[in-house]
Design a protein around this nucleic acid. Structure first.
Length: 819
RNA sequence: GCCGAAGUGGCGGAAUUGGUAGACGCGCUGGACUCAAAAUCCAGUGGGGCUCACACCUCGUGCCGGUUCGAGUCCGGCCUUCGGUACCA
């Protein structure tokens, strides 16, 4: 018998061949057929590659290889998202410098990646912790600053007491914990750097219509941006010259506004609170302070609030309405003040009920309506000139009225907040700002970039950025006046690094620009981007924002960074997400050693739909191993064929014997099926089709050499994307002189072979299957009927019954309805 | 609470626009090979009934109902699981 497939030797051999011959080096000057295939790069957080990484990168590479075979000039780079907290926390614990541990990890990961056998262009490798990379983060910061899109402000921010740093809103989970470490986040007032992503809110929303992304992801971004259309209305305060501006999406309900609520942080509060209410107001404000944002905004919490004693004037009917404060009104959205319309708003209804405030309905609910606040459409009531109008018409009319009287105007709001980018940590990009007592906040000059991150710092548990205590780094001369000044001790969020890295891959060594603009013109946008769904509202939103900004300053001609996006599913272990801290990480190395990289890759692809992921189990891996063994055996039975025969591209079916015909058809059917499946990332069904073909190949010994060669050539090519090493070996067993990927090619199926001449038609009586009949394809109804009436099994169900109706779907089904 | 996705054999999972449910693989059962085992190969494998057997009957895609000649697929109402979100006026 043949020996087992010596995967270790063969995989090493081909990896060496690919590297020696630079098979996967992309010629970026040829952009005609370009396909930029990008995977979200690796975050080398201390752990090595685990099964989840494999699940992401392996199948994704198979898709890229398939595209290469189909004639695309594929660029598939890989790099390292090398800055970040884990390396620094590791340093605090062990004393090993983040730079050293990160480089060591990267070296290990690179080895593992090479063993996977992906077609990465290693000349394009990059890591974000190198000065030649992060220099351009600083450059980006300067450009944003110059356009007024990077600014510093004092604001309540999310602070993680464990990581000792602030977090962007997106990095706080819905249960109020830190996205990275799971600690409960608290609120602090701090002065921090922000990027003005809100400036692009509308464009970020509109751009979603132009890209082919999972609908789910686009919906998450839409919700995160959270556009709402409404109006701002000014309410005069009784007895003051001041007025309060409120925001509402329901200006049509103005006549139902029976009180007003301000955020406890509202700036006018001190001024308008009536003396005898002041103590209570102050007490309430103090009680709010100790609450976290999460506690304050919990929907299960009962409404609280206090009266200010002041009154506002409802501008439509000049009624005096009381002004309250309540923590459910947030200073950070809209104007920090609302008109309360309990008749049409559940929260306001709840509040009004609790504090005995008046309720007026201004939309007529249907007669059978039993709820409290009515939010649906209906005719306006109790609203004078709006009465009878439905919501949309009423809105239009009242806004016109408000604008004419200069009391209000239509207004659009977004939930999206500006991106908080400063971090009180060491292992990141230094912020290129100098503070001078005389000149204030000064930008580092572009020619002085990069502001290098010093190596010799001390890591102490307990918090402050190590940079603060690094005198040599901190103390500089002001670039403007030359006086003593200090650097900004903070570093940037690592999402800044990943917001533009796809540009840099095109030439990671360029020194004159952040990236090669000429190449970017041809190669950007990324054609296919593959990565985890957890980045839906963070990385994927930031990258789109930075892309649009780069476009606006003339650095790219495209609107969106990633035209197609696919999310691989998550591989869990016993239901839990794999993580080093949980200790449930499945190490792929043991499987590579036992079965080889092709088997492991194929198994991951065969497990189920790529977008779904699933719980890890190695139970089925022997199945793909058997497939690989049998394939290797098969090719070894027919060595040297390419030297012996030259098969034709197409064969006439009637010149083939029965076995040849069956094989020929199956080969071509498989090409078609496989092509469709893999093109849509349906690797599991593509592999199933290959397995079916392999089963059929048993008949190969009964075929001519030409058909043998014809079939095996095609089999090897189909194998190439999903088991690249095995495929190369199989092709060389046939005595091919070159690597498949050196001169990529693909076979189109012979359309004649795809047509079946006989079809089996399901015969139903009253919708129940009672038999099948074999007929030539496209048989007429009468022919089929003649046949089935001669079928004993079927006839039995028709005896002594009256046929009421017959349905015939050609080549599929014949249903007879009887009484 | 709201938004989104998904529930199919012992297991992972297949099923164009409604048209033969369970492809492919794992596991299991039986057989071949072997001194024996492993590996490999061949055959069978949704549940229940009936039969010596072939056949046949019947029930089956989370639950209840509907549309249809025909529903895993469409519609209405639930249940469960998983993601996202959290009083955004």
């Amino acid at each position: 018998m043949t020996t087992r497939y010596p995967f270790s030797e063969i995989e090493t051999k081909w990896q060496q061949y690919w590297e020696d011959n630079k098979v996967y080096q992309t010629d970026l000057s040829l952009s005609e057929n370009k396909l930029y295939h990008l995977n979200m790069f690796i975050y080398p957080s201390g752990a090595k590659l685990h099964t989840g990484h494999w699940y992401h990168y392996g199948p994704s590479d198979s898709w890229a290889r398939y595209q290469k075979l189909k004639g695309k000039n594929v660029f598939e780079p890989m790099g390292y998202d090398a800055f970040g907290l884990p390396a620094e926390n590791y340093a605090i614990k062990t004393g090993i410098h983040p730079y050293d541990s990160t480089i060591a990890n990267i070296n290990e990961i690179r080895k593992q990646l090479k063993r996977m056998g992906c077609m990465y262009d290693w000349d394009a490798e990059l890591m974000t912790c190198e000065p030649k990379y992060y220099k351009w983060n600083q450059w980006l910061f300067l450009q944003l600053y110059k356009k007024g899109l990077a600014y510093r402000k004092n604001a309540p921010v999310n602070w993680c007491p464990n990581d000792h740093t602030v977090l962007a809103n997106e990095q706080v989970l819905s249960d109020g914990t830190c996205e990275r470490c799971g600690t409960s986040v608290i609120q602090k007032n701090l002065t921090q750097w922000f990027f003005k992503i809100t400036e692009y809110a509308e464009q970020l929303l509109e751009g979603l219509d132009k890209i082919t992304w999972p609908e789910k992801t686009k919906l998450m971004q839409r919700n995160w941006i959270g556009k709402s259309v409404g109006a701002e209305v000014n309410f005069q305060i009784n007895g003051h010259n001041e007025s309060i501006k409120i925001y509402t999406t329901r200006p049509d309900t103005l006549f139902g506004a029976t009180y007003m609520v301000l955020s406890p942080e509202h700036p006018l509060l001190d001024k308008l609170t009536i003396q005898k209410f002041k103590d209570e107001v102050q007490e309430y404000r103090n009680s709010i302070k100790s609450l976290t944002e999460i506690e304050r905004t919990s929907t299960v919490k009962e409404k609280t609030g206090v009266n200010t004693g002041a009154f506002a004037i409802n501008p439509v009917n000049h009624k005096k309405i009381p002004i309250w404060i309540a923590d459910y009104v947030l200073m950070t959205y809209g104007t920090g003040a609302i008109m309360a319309v309990p008749g049409q708003d559940e929260r306001d209804w709840e509040f009004a009920e609790k504090f005995n405030l008046p309720i007026i309905r201004t939309v007529q609910p249907p007669s059978d309506f039993e709820g409290k606040a009515y939010l649906e459409d209906g005719p306006a009531i109790n609203s004078e000139f709006l009465n009878g109008l439905y919501v949309e018409e009423a809105k239009e009319k009242i806004i016109k009225w408000l604008e004419k009287k200069a009391i209000g105007k239509s207004k659009v709001n977004y939930h999206l907040r500006d991106w908080l980018i400063s971090r009180q940590r060491y292992w990141g990009t230094p912020i290129p700002i100098i503070y001078c007592e005389k000149c204030g906040e000064i930008l580092v000059d572009e020619k002085d970039l990069p502001v290098e991150l010093p190596y010799d710092v001390h890591f102490k548990p307990g918090g402050e950025s190590p940079l603060i205590n690094h005198a040599k780094f901190m103390n500089v001369k002001c670039p403007k006046c030359g006086m003593d000044a200090k650097r900004d001790p903070d570093t940037m969020d690592t999402f800044v690094d990943s917001a533009w890295y796809y540009f840099r891959f095109l030439n990671p060594h360029i020194d004159s620009d952040p990236f090669d603009k000429k190449l970017a013109e041809k190669w950007i946008p990324v054609d296919m981007y593959v990565g985890g769904a957890e980045h839906a509202t963070m990385h994927l939103l930031y990258a789109r924002f930075i892309h649009k900004f780069l476009r606006d300053i003339g650095y790219t001609n495209s609107d969106e960074p990633f035209s197609h996006l696919v999310h691989q599913g998550t591989i869990t272990n016993q239901g839990a997400k794999m993580s080093k801290s949980k200790g449930n990480v499945v190490n792929p190395d043991q499987f590579i050693e036992k079965y080889g990289s092709d088997v492991f890759r194929m198994y991951l692809m065969f497990m189920g739909p790529y977008e779904l992921g699933g719980d890890w189990s190695d139970k089925g891996i022997v199945g793909t191993d058997r497939f690989v063994q049998r394939t290797y055996e098969l090719f070894n039975k027919f060595p040297d064929l390419l030297n012996q025969v030259t098969p034709k591209d197409v064969y006439e079916l009637n010149q083939l014997n029965e076995n040849e015909k069956l094989i020929y058809k199956k080969v071509n059917q498989t090409i078609k099926k496989y092509d469709e499946e893999i093109n849509h990332f349906r690797f599991n069904t593509a592999i199933a089709a290959m397995m079916e073909l392999l089963n059929e190949m048993k008949k190969l010994e009964l075929c001519s050499k030409e058909i043998q060669c014809y079939s095996l050539k095609r089999f090897a090519i189909l194998l190439a994307p999903i088991a690249p090493h095995l495929s190369e070996e199989c092709f060389s067993i046939l005595r091919s002189k070159e690597s498949i990927f050196q001169k990529p090619f693909w076979f189109e199926p012979d359309p004649i072979a795809l047509v079946e001449d006989l079809v089996s038609i399901a015969v139903q009586v009253n919708g129940k299957l009672r038999g099948t009949v074999e007929v030539p394809i496209n048989s007429s109804q009468n022919d089929v009927k003649d046949l089935l009436l001669n079928d004993e099994k079927i006839k039995k169900h028709l005896d002594e019954k009256e046929i009421v109706k017959e349905i015939y779907v050609p080549n599929k089904i014949y249903n007879i309805v009887v009484k």
